[in-house]
Each structure stands twice: as structure tokens, then as C-alpha cells.
Design a protein around this nucleic acid. Structure first.
Length: 200
DNA sequence: CTGGGGATCGAG
DNA sequence: TCGATCCCCAGG
């Protein structure tokens, strides 16, 4: 049973985005307490986005707009945005001072609050609760309107430390065909063998 | 496979 | 101001 109160220290989020993604975030627990209902899941899949050079990143090339401004904040806050007229996507800002990097959380293995997730997602199939960036936001009650910019060591949305290290795979990211030479970078990471992955 | 749905941002 | 486009998902 994981200890959901063991939060990842804020100082971690000032590190290199790839290293933090793979060594701290993959396998960690994303926890939410929205509307008084506790939910959590282990992070099984994520993608790294780098503001300075990466054409798939909203903040490329270090572009500060109303939408991207939270990515320019100090690491350790949430970058949550709304897409396709109905979905939210949750990112962890992981940036050394002055950079604008984000780690998109793409899938979780549900570990707590499954009934709440089922209610919010209107399904009882566990494999369908949090296996996609839009799905997991819905399951955990995360929205851009309420949670963009929020600090991840607070008491509404936070990350708890992982209990062990996992073997992982690195493959190209999803849904970024427009990103030219960056579209094939293997910056999508997932836990090897997990059945809680957004797509094969 | 299809198409819904609303915010975004750069062009005009 | 306009509109092409978007880090997606449910349904058939």
C-alpha cells in the first residue's frame, strides 16, 4: 500500500525534464482530492516536451502566451489545458530556472478511489478509467479552469513518491504529426509490461 | 473509421 | 476580427 502523503519534494522539479520524468515521475502516484473525493493512480506512461527546441511543445520556441505562461513558472506546478472542445490534459512543469518544459501524463494504473473514477467516467471497466490523457483528467476531476498553475505539493492535486524503480520503454510521442523533425523523437516513456497504457 | 466540440493565436 | 488547427475519445 503506497503512502500517498509522501510527496515528491519541490526541489526535484527543478531538474532535467528527462531525468525527472524517468527517475521520479514514472511509477509515482498522481493523487487528487477534488470535491472531497480522494483518487490516485500510478503513472504508467508520460511524454516530455521541451519549450526551447521542441516543435511539439506549446511553448516552442520559448513562446510566452496566455496559455503557456504556466509552463514558464518554476517547476512543481501543473500545466493543465483544454483541447478538442471537451478534454483536459495534465502536465507537470519540470524546469530549471528560465526554461519551459512539461511532462504530459498519459496514463495511470488506478490505485485508490476507483468508485469515484467509475462514476466520473461512466464506465466500470478498470482498463478504461485512466488510460489516456483526457480520460485520467476526467477520472481524477482535473480541469484547466480549476487546476492550471496549481502547486503540486498542495492538498488538492499532488504527486507521491514511487515505491520502486521500473523498467521502461522509450518510443515516439502521440498526436504530434505537425512537429516535423521532432515528431519521431522517442520522448514517450512507459512502464514495460503495464496493461495501463493509452495505446499499444 | 468518423466527427464533435471550444479555445487558441497568428494572419489579415 | 476570422478560421485552421489542436499533446482526444466514444460510438458504430
Amino acid at each position: 500500500m503506497p503512502d500517498y502523503n509522501l510527496k515528491i519534494p519541490l526541489s526535484v522539479y527543478a531538474g532535467n525534464a528527462f531525468e525527472v520524468a524517468v527517475e521520479h515521475l514514472l511509477g509515482a502516484y498522481l493523487c487528487s482530492n477534488v470535491g472531497g473525493r480522494f483518487c490516485a493512480g500510478m503513472i504508467t506512461e508520460l511524454e516530455v516536451y521541451i519549450g526551447s527546441c521542441d516543435k511539439a511543445c506549446h511553448a516552442y520556441p520559448n513562446k510566452l502566451t496566455p496559455r503557456t505562461k504556466t509552463m514558464f513558472q518554476a517547476g512543481g506546478c501543473a500545466y493543465v489545458f483544454f483541447v478538442y472542445g471537451m478534454y483536459n490534459q495534465f502536465n507537470v512543469v519540470v524546469s530549471p530556472e528560465g526554461e519551459a518544459n512539461a511532462v504530459l501524463i498519459r496514463a495511470l494504473e488506478p490505485t485508490a478511489g476507483l468508485e469515484t473514477m467509475m462514476e466520473r467516467r461512466k464506465t466500470s471497466k478498470i482498463e478504461n478509467l485512466t488510460t489516456g490523457p483526457g480520460k485520467l483528467c476526467q477520472a481524477l476531476g482535473i480541469t484547466a479552469q480549476k487546476h492550471d498553475g496549481i502547486n503540486l505539493s498542495g492538498d488538492e492535486i499532488w504527486l507521491a513518491r514511487r515505491e520502486r524503480r521500473w523498467d521502461y520503454c522509450a518510443v515516439p510521442r502521440v498526436g504530434i504529426d505537425y512537429a516535423e523533425e521532432y515528431k519521431d523523437k522517442p520522448w514517450r516513456f512507459y512502464i514495460k509490461g503495464s496493461k495501463f497504457i493509452s495505446r499499444p
